[in-house]
Simulated assay, not measured.
Amino acid sequence: MAHAVNGVVAAGRGAKVSVETILVPDPGPGEALVKVQACGVCHTDLHYREGGINDEFPFLLGHEAAGVVEAVGEGVTDLAPGDFVILNWRAVCGSCRSCLRGRPQYCFNTHNASQPMTLADGTPLSPALGIGAFAEKTLVHSGQCTKVNPKAPAEVAGLLGCGVMAGIGAAINTGGVTRGDSVAVLGCGGVGDAAIAGARLAGARTIIAVDLDPTKLEWAQRFGATHTVNAREQDVVEAIRELTEGNGADVVIDAVGRPETFKQAFYARDHAGLAVLVGVPTPDMQLELPLIDVFSRGGAVKSSWYGDCLPSRDFPMLIDLYLQGRLDLGAFVTETIGLEDVEKAFEDMHHGRVLRSVVVL
């Protein structure tokens, strides 16, 4: 039986999104039907609408979500109706070469639901990141559901499904930030502020927030930045060195994802320091660095995909920290909205007026 529900659809490149009736099938083998309670509005959804991911329109947008399992398909033994879950877009397989080497966070064979969700006329939809959660219900692979403590409100729990996890993981998992480290974060939107929060959780001594927008720098201080640098007014590399006894930071996280910001991250790190790229570049971007500088400065350069997270490990831990009052996930939520407000939320996000808009269903 198909469930007719409302969902936000991007019909074509650059077209405004609309709320449409979509048909969600009952779960088949290995699948779960989830009643969505809340879903954050992420830049990735805007990239889908603009055709920046691929051209497989129409898209069912939304992926940063939490909700309650309504039904499970054959063979699903670790989920049950009524479970409160955060959705993730990397359901690890457990059998690829990365999983078998004990590195499931780099799984090469992640799973999505097999059955398509469709428009009322039968047109198949492409769910954003295999989730499609700007909808009253969605169909996912059971491995995309991570059970967490239901005491956490859905509007904050769902943020771990993408942006907040990406930033915290960039600091803790990829960057390996630890007690006493100095950290600089370039770009103080949702992902950058989450990286700042992660660095504070890990015990960093100095946390430097860098942005062009004074308002975003104020936001960054709420999450734990000890110093701020306005990139319109200061040389970023020199400012970071001045704040780290002339050495550069131990870890520099680029949450923007542009060649110019990554060069700043590369040169603003200490000798043998680490530069982490978590901001997502576009396919046309090119980076040029003198190879002698790569050699002579030592250290490492890493990309951080989804914060190198393992949802089954990281989501419950971070929810527990939230419930203990040690991680203020609520500070990321600027506003709560309805499905019909997603287009305006994209505009507000594009202009930097919000940290996170969250659709509440």
Rank of each mutant, 00 (worst) to 15 (best):
F295G: 10
A195E: 04
T174E: 09
T261W: 04
G180Y: 07
V17A: 09
G163D: 14
M117R: 07
H141Q: 08
Q286Y: 05
H350L: 12
G330K: 14
V333A: 04
A231F: 10
G299K: 05
Q324V: 05
D341I: 05
H351L: 11
L318G: 07
L186G: 03
T118S: 15
V276A: 03
R232T: 13
P124F: 02
V360A: 12
S303G: 15
V19R: 09
R297E: 09
R90W: 05
G338R: 14
E245L: 11
C42Q: 00
C107I: 04
A209D: 08
L100S: 14
R103N: 13
S312F: 08
T123A: 06
V342H: 00
G12K: 11
S296C: 15
V185I: 09
H141F: 04
G187I: 10
L212V: 10
L291N: 12
M1Y: 13
A170L: 04
E343D: 12
W219D: 03
R13P: 04
C145I: 08
Q234G: 09
G257N: 13
P116M: 09
D270R: 13
C107D: 01
L159Y: 03
F57I: 07
S304A: 09
G352Q: 09
I292T: 13
P124S: 06
L277A: 13
D26W: 05
T110I: 15
A133G: 09
H3I: 13
K16F: 06
D328Y: 04
V34P: 00
G192F: 03
P116S: 12
C99E: 06
G75N: 12
L287F: 14
L289H: 07
F108H: 13
E20T: 07
R353S: 10
Q264D: 11
D308P: 01
Q324L: 14
R297G: 07
D284E: 12
K302F: 02
M317V: 15
G299C: 07
L79D: 06
G52A: 14
D250M: 07
T146Q: 10
H43E: 00
I208K: 01
V85T: 03
K35G: 11
L186D: 00
A225I: 05
G190D: 07
Q37P: 01
C107N: 06
D341N: 12
N149V: 05
S18Y: 01
H350D: 14
Q105R: 13
G273Q: 02
P281S: 10
R101C: 04
G248D: 05
Y106N: 15
T215D: 14
V358I: 11
R232N: 13
D181W: 08
A2L: 14
F108Y: 14
G158H: 00
G338A: 14
G248E: 09
A197I: 01
V76G: 02
A152Y: 01
T138R: 00
E245C: 10
A135E: 02
D121H: 11
